[in-house]
Design a protein around this nucleic acid. Structure first.
Lengths: 233, 233
DNA sequence: TATCTTTGTGTTATAATTACACTATCAAAC
DNA sequence: GTTTGATAGTGTAATTATAACACAAAGATA
């Protein structure tokens, strides 16, 4: 794990980290997962989960590893967001951080007994505490990216369990876009995509809810992508 | 210029560079600016202009500096694209590169007599030669980003001189979106944005062209942005 | 002044968007 | 098991956006 680099020029060598903005949806609310820092600087502050990129690791796999360590979920939507590298963003020296954002299904999320996860907590995006480093800026950018993305990619499903109600899906759209949507028009649009199927058997609703369940047809989506179909929801 | 870093952990310290995908528009063609590498590795290959991030420099200012060195233009549209950090992308050792993409007005571009610029050349996006490192991947991503962006942000104007013909603007859209557009429908859409004004006096056309000139109303655009108006063109 | 190239313009059919109110179903409390 | 409260589910009409289509006017050049 010692630094090794054959590069012939003698330029600054910053430390390289990844930080993850992990979104989840729960109780009609869009949330992000934050940890409480155990060490200085910013000891006690909330911060994005993240860590150093290892020697033989791609940025993507470093981000996936951090996500896995924190949430114990794999096979989730994860995408590079932006790279933050202002000198002075970390008081200890120059640290470049490539931020990722991930969408996880809360049902898959497992609380780990270990050090890291014990400090992790979900916060509603409307009530995020002051964050360490430049993490507030990172979160803001992630929210904007998500807002832009949901217009043309059906990312809402990544936050829901396999079976869900259309109202839940609508709530996600409302939480991300920050505006109320008309129920019938929303359903019309979802119908149009043909990506959501209503389950045949009437299943029992969730607690305190009267609801049918729906399912996202991921195969249909992937086939449509191959044909180059462009989704606007 | 010696590496300096007080970071308390002992992790790999990659070298950090920026690479710029510089777009220009000329002769009804979308082009990018490439340099010819003078040193190994990939000596003689075409590559994206770029270089090391300096010690007290932000990523943005490193990208702007590289752009300035290469094209001698400032005050242009430039935006971070993506960060490439696979181990092995540079045979000399671990190099992280944050890619930027820029849109320049060809009229502002000045050929510099010095080393760097003498090796620079514009290539049509349809005829890009084999590139050094993973630069082909970077260019591809920049093209896709531009394609996505032009749908909701009037970036086409960044590639045109102050006064332009609507046909030129349409050609840019066609080059970026890679499809033919209907002239009357295109003009209807442009009219709807109210961002383009036809110049009062009929000005002489460019050589071999019969044309009126139009102008992009940047102030109107910025005011609209402040009001939160969302442009789809 | 003739010729060639490019500009500029309107209508109609189809599709998408918006706005809007009531009944049916389920779950829980009594 | 009946009542009550909460949520799910449904259609239509007016407006707006999109797509398809052809020819005359203006400028540049020879």
């Amino acid at each position: 794990m010692t630094p090794k680099n054959n590069y012939c020029y003698d330029y600054p060598r910053p430390a390289l980290t990844v930080d993850c903005v992990i979104f989840g949806y729960d109780a009609s609310d869009l949330k992000i997962l934050l940890i409480k820092r155990g060490i200085e600087p910013f000891k006690g502050h909330a911060a994005l989960p993240g860590g150093f990129v290892r020697e033989h690791e791609t940025l993507d796999s470093a981000a996936k590893r951090e996500l896995m360590e924190e949430t114990n979920v794999s096979n989730v939507f994860i995408e590079q967001l932006y790279t933050f590298g202002n000198p002075g963003r970390d008081p200890r020296g120059r640290v470049i951080s490539t931020a990722y954002f991930a969408l996880v299904k809360r049902e898959d999320y497992i609380v780990i007994a270990g050090d890291d996860a014990a400090k992790a907590r979900w916060y509603s995006v409307g009530a995020i505490p002051p964050l360490a480093f430049d993490h507030a800026e990172i979160v803001e950018m992630a929210l904007n990216r998500l807002k832009g993305k949901i217009r043309y990619q059906p990312v809402g499903f990544e936050l829901l369990p396999e079976k869900f109600t259309l109202s839940d899906l609508q709530h996600i759209y409302e939480a991300i876009l920050q505006k109320k949507l008309d129920k019938r028009n929303f359903r019309k649009k979802i119908d149009k995509t043909e990506l959501v199927i209503r389950l045949n058997e009437k299943e029992k609703g969730v607690a305190h809810r009267a609801a049918y369940y729906y399912k996202f047809d991921k195969k249909k989506y992937e086939n449509a992508l191959k044909k180059g179909i462009y989704f606007e929801i």
